[in-house]
Amino acid sequence: MTGLAAEVESDVPGGAPARVSTPQPGDARLGRLSLNQRTTARWSLREALDGARAAGLPAVGLWREPVAEVGLGRAARWVRESGLRVSSLCRGGFFTASDGAGRAAAVAANRAAIDEAAELGARTLVLVPGGLPPGDRDLAAARARVAEAVATLVPYARERGVVLGIEPMNPVYAADRGVVSTLAQALELAAPHAPDEVGVVVDTFHLWWEPGVHALLESSGERIVSYQVCDWVTPLPADTLLARGMMGDGHVDFASFTTAVARSGYSGDVEVEIFNADVWAAPGDRVLATMARRYVELVEPYL
C-alpha cells in the first residue's frame, strides 16, 4: 500500500498497520459511534460536524467552549442542519467550592449549561464533580457538596429535558478535578433521583481499573447515560490529562468492559473521547479513520 491509501489506512499516532479496513459511510457498524470534540481538538465546531458527517458517523459529543466561540444559536442551527445527534454536552459540574458564593456561582453556571444542552438537543450534560479547594483535605465534605449541588439542579434540568450525568474520574484527578473516583460513588450520588434525572457517565479511561466494575456496570441499568471510550496508555505523560490513547494502544480490555455495559441495557451512543497530544497533532480525517477502525474491531462487536 503506497501514497494516500497508505496514509488513510495507517493508524495514529504511531502509524501501525491497520487491522481492519476503514468502515465507509452507511456501514451499519457505525450506527452508534460518536465523535467527542476533544478527540479532534484542533477542529472547530464546523469542522467537527462536517468531519463526522464525511466519515459516516451519526453523532457528536460537544464541548461548551467551541459552541460559545460561534454562539449558541448558530451552533444549534448547524447541528440541526447536520442531521447529527448530540450524544452529550461537556461540561458542567465543579461543585466543590467551600464558600457559599463559590457554590452559588457553580449552580448558576450549571443552569446556563443545562440551557445550552437543551438548545443543542443534548439529552445528557456531563458533570465533572470538581476537585478539592485550595488548602482543603476533606474529601467527604467535598463529595457532600457535589450531592447538594446536583439535588439543587435536578428540578431545573428536569424542566428542560436534560439528564445530569455524573462522571466519576480516575483517582489521579481526585485533588484537582474529580472527588468522585469510582462508579460505586457516582451511583450512590445518583440514587436519590430518578434515572431520567441523574445518571452516570461511564468512561473506560476512568473506570477500567475499578474492582468489581463489571458487576456494577451490569446492574446499573438506566443509570448509564453516556458511554465514553479510549485507552489508558503508559508511560504516563508529564500532564496526566493527556494520558488517553486510541483504543487498542493501552491496557483497557474493551471486550469485557463493553460487554458489561451492554448487559446493563445501555443502547445509546458510544463516544470516543481522547486527550492526547500526538492524536491532536494528526490530521483530523486520519484520526477519524483510525477511530472508526478501532471501534468496529474492539468495541462494536460487544455492544
Rank of each mutant, 00 (worst) to 15 (best):
G51C: 07
E7I: 15
E159I: 05
E271I: 04
Y173P: 05
N170L: 10
G14W: 06
N170K: 14
V8Y: 14
N276A: 00
R286K: 02
W208G: 10
L4V: 13
G135E: 06
E271R: 04
W63N: 01
G265A: 11
W280S: 05
G100P: 05
H193K: 03
V213F: 03
D239Q: 12
G135H: 04
A105T: 09
R111H: 12
W208M: 10
V20F: 06
P211D: 11
R80D: 06
S98P: 04
A215E: 15
D196T: 08
S220E: 02
L132F: 06
A144Y: 07
V213C: 04
L35G: 04
T240F: 12
A255R: 15
V272I: 14
T2W: 13
T182W: 04
A55F: 01
A142L: 03
A109Y: 08
G51L: 01
G56A: 00
D269R: 10
V163D: 09
L127M: 13
R19Q: 12
V213G: 01
T2E: 15
D176W: 15
V296I: 10
F275W: 06
T290I: 10
G31W: 04
V287Q: 01
L288T: 01
W63C: 01
V107E: 13
G51R: 00
A113Y: 05
E271Q: 09
F205I: 07
P58G: 07
V67H: 00
E47Q: 15
C230A: 07
M246A: 14
D231H: 03
D115M: 14
D203E: 15
V8H: 09
L216N: 01
A5I: 12
D285E: 12
C230Y: 02
